[in-house]
């Protein structure tokens, strides 16, 4: 108890309170790196998150891959196995799961009070959002790369250049998905609400991204439900990230409908920019909800 009252204070006296001369200006990039670092540290200190984020998609991949092996045929040639087809989709699912669970922590931070301490700091709001998003993205990317390494051993083979491009694509898609998570989590006051969004928005978004089944082609024989599905999937930005990844792992066969590779990159980048902008915007507004 006495430590408080009697400890030596020479250090503090030397720098005598924050006089204008010694005032330290905030450095946004220091804030970004620290917020990012905190995300990563927290993630790896919670082992169950590590297991959950990669375990479930891998399990899905193996189980669905085995189960659908016989019934799944893409196009007329039917040469793509489901395990190979489903591989880029699983990669995106891992990114999605990790990114989303990383941003759920915003709700916890708000509820537990940590967030208000961050919000009143002098560093600009974009640096707070970027730190969070970057942290979530790097976690997601690390999980994606672990899966990639596993898959290379088991099934898929790809060139080094393709693997590097895939890493870049995963990073950009990770930014988009983590920012989306921030947008959803920012105004939410319970993690239950987040789970509801997960089931009705995020999982359907993933299912309709070509991850699980190909985008139906608009042929003469297409019925109305195929036309509807085609357009819904076309409007889903995740479709382009999945297709972009599929090109890189060589899983696109000639007769499968798929957006052009360049378009995949453009849409994925625009998705990331728009989502990050939205996250910045929503986090920049001060409301009564910021206080707890």
């Amino acid at each position: 108890m006495s430590a408080l009252a009697t400890s030596n204070t020479k250090d503090h006296a030397a720098t005598k309170s924050a006089s204008p001369a010694t005032l330290v200006r905030p450095n946004p990039w220091l804030a970004v790196s620290m917020l990012c670092w905190r995300e990563i540290i927290r993630f790896f200190r919670q082992r169950n998150r590590v297991v959950g984020a990669i375990g479930q998609p891998v399990l899905f991949w193996l189980l669905f891959g085995a189960g659908f092996q016989r019934s799944f045929r893409v196009g007329e040639s039917g040469e793509t196995s489901f395990l190979a087809y489903y591989f880029p989709g699983t990669l995106m699912l891992i990114l999605l799961f990790t990114a989303i669970f990383a941003t759920i922590s915003i709700i916890e931070d708000r509820r537990e009070g940590l967030l208000q301490g961050v919000l009143i700091a002098p560093c600009p709001r974009w640096s707070m959002v970027l730190g969070k998003v970057l942290g979530g993205t790097l976690i997601a990317l690390s999980q994606g790369l672990i899966f990639l390494a596993l898959a290379l051993v088991i099934q898929v083979s790809m060139s080094v250049a393709a693997a590097l491009w895939l890493t870049v694509l995963m990073f950009v898609a990770g930014i988009a998905l983590t920012s989306l998570g921030v947008v959803i989590a920012w105004r939410m006051d319970s993690t239950q609400g987040f789970h509801a969004i997960m089931s009705v928005v995020l999982l359907p978004m993933w299912l309709l991204s070509g991850a699980f089944f190909p985008v139906p082609a608009l042929g003469a024989s297409a019925n109305w439900s195929e036309v509807a599905l085609h357009w819904v999937m076309l409007l889903n930005p995740l479709t382009y990230s999945v297709a972009g990844a599929r090109y890189l792992v060589g899983g696109v066969s000639g007769d499968m409908w798929s957006p052009a590779p360049a378009l995949c990159w453009v849409v994925t980048c625009v998705f990331a920019i728009v989502m990050f902008g939205a996250a910045w915007w929503i986090a920049g507004r001060r409301t009564t909800g910021d206080a707890i």
């Binding site: 924050a18 330290v24 905030p26 905190r38 540290i41 537990e112 009070g113 940590l114 208000q116 301490g117």
Partner: peptide, 18 residues
């Protein structure tokens, strides 16, 4: 103001995992 202001909230603002 934020640069010169120290705040201790009633609700703990600590990260328990750190």
């Amino acid at each position: 103001i934020r640069l010169r202001l120290g705040v201790v909230f009633q609700a703990p603002s600590l990260d328990k995992k750190l």
